[in-house]
Design a protein around this nucleic acid. Structure first.
Lengths: 234, 234
DNA sequence: CGCGCTTTTGAACGCGTTCAAGGGGTGTGG
DNA sequence: CCACACCCCTTGAACGCGTTCAAAAGCGCG
């Protein structure tokens, strides 16, 4: 039955881990499923927020646009992740655009309905708090990057953190696949493709990494970390 | 009695609004009060976080320091506000330094103890979620400022939002008092005092505002908003 | 092969920083 | 009451990182 598959999928999301079956049933009662095609805009910056989403499958980018058209990608949401909770629970407008980067299936929760559930389920409340705490930490990182690190350091930090997440360790010889275009990577580092291109080149010239299309091989993680920490500059 | 006064003070904090007296008693049971002198460091970036704070009186600045010594002030915490929740509930390290800017009285809550309370009090859980949601929105703003607005626009946004908060409206002739030094304002806008000084001067030369020591008078709010929105540049 | 897209490269420009010097206010001690 | 130190703010000039603008090169795809 369709419902059961959906419940199984919801359980994968961190937000719904460790919940009882009865709690999951309550969630199902207020959940609305949705589908998106590649390139669909789910919501726009400035739209009034009444609820939030859990992405079951696909990829969605959350981004801002400056008055003169520059794009900053705040986050690429992946499967099992929650987004737009802050806007939903603060009652303000969405601060970003949400645009699908592939076919997506997702679930929408109305904020008021969800609040009612939270009152009944302490575990759900704790999960939501933990989710938001992690998000806060990651935004904090971004602010640190943007306000006091230069582009080279940001790129190195990004590469190292991806290497650690995927390989559980960053050691010489590790190869990463960029999941998006380089332009998108630039936009998520707070810069533009030209600058990213030049930065990659400098790192390559120093023998710190090897770039080949969309695959990047880390050759000298020690130096990579020194640049990431701002100890040496490009 | 001392305890009663403390309870009254806690009730002022948004985090504890709409709580029953029994819930406040439970809070008191796990609260640890603390005092700080001007200039004390409460915690440092990198310290392991086990709990969070509610500031009862005084001012505390939360800031980051870059490898080469530049300071970015993330937030100046005022009375009744909560801070370091994200670090406490994510179990990671504090991402910032916390330094008192005056005599302070504050309350410390251990994260584990607090989690237990949340399980018993749905209202407390909702309050915490609302608090974190607002914080997320404000960090989001900062990211937007840093990544896609220039210094002039950031300053104008700051002035306008302060004017609106304090006077509930920003109209020509409104005068604001800077609560900190201009260097600190610069650091919280992600720049340095020299640049801030020059930016103030440009705005003054255009007749948009009048700066006299630490008081700023808004003369032309319409233009101020246009600069804040990036419609015109300095 | 030719079209559209992303990426790369080059050169010029500009915002903001750095470095350095000078002004202005305040508190302290002679 | 003045002299001096200290701190903050201001101003000027030079520099540099990153952007903008322009063009060429690579690349997937019909």
């Amino acid at each position: 039955m369709e419902k059961n598959r959906l419940i199984e999928e919801l359980k994968q999301a961190d937000l719904f881990s460790r919940l009882e079956n009865s709690e999951l049933d309550d969630l199902m009662a207020i959940a609305r499923t949705r589908r998106l095609e590649n390139g669909d805009i789910l919501f726009s910056a400035g739209d009034q927020a009444k609820g939030f989403y859990v992405l079951l499958a696909g990829k969605i980018k959350l981004y801002k646009i400056s008055p003169d058209g520059k794009e900053y990608i705040l986050r690429v949401v992946g499967g099992g992740q929650t987004f737009a909770e802050a806007a939903a629970f603060s009652g303000l407008a969405y601060p970003v655009f949400a645009e699908s980067m592939s076919q997506c299936r997702l679930v929408y929760f109305d904020a008021d309905d969800f609040r009612n559930l939270i009152q009944k389920s302490p575990q759900l409340a704790l999960n939501m708090i933990a989710t938001m705490a992690l998000l806060l930490q990651s935004l904090n990182q971004k602010i640190e990057d943007l306000s006091l690190r230069e582009v080279g350091a940001r790129l190195c930090r990004h590469l190292l953190s991806r290497a650690r997440r995927e390989q559980s360790e960053a050691k010489d010889g590790t190869t990463l696949q960029l999941e998006t275009t380089k332009s998108a990577l630039a936009a998520s580092l707070g810069t533009i493709s030209e600058t990213l291109s030049r930065t990659f080149k400098k790192l390559q010239n120093r023998g710190i990494l090897q770039v080949d299309g969309s695959s990047v091989t880390l050759l000298d993680c020690k130096q990579l970390e020194e640049i990431a920490d701002g100890d040496i500059k490009l």
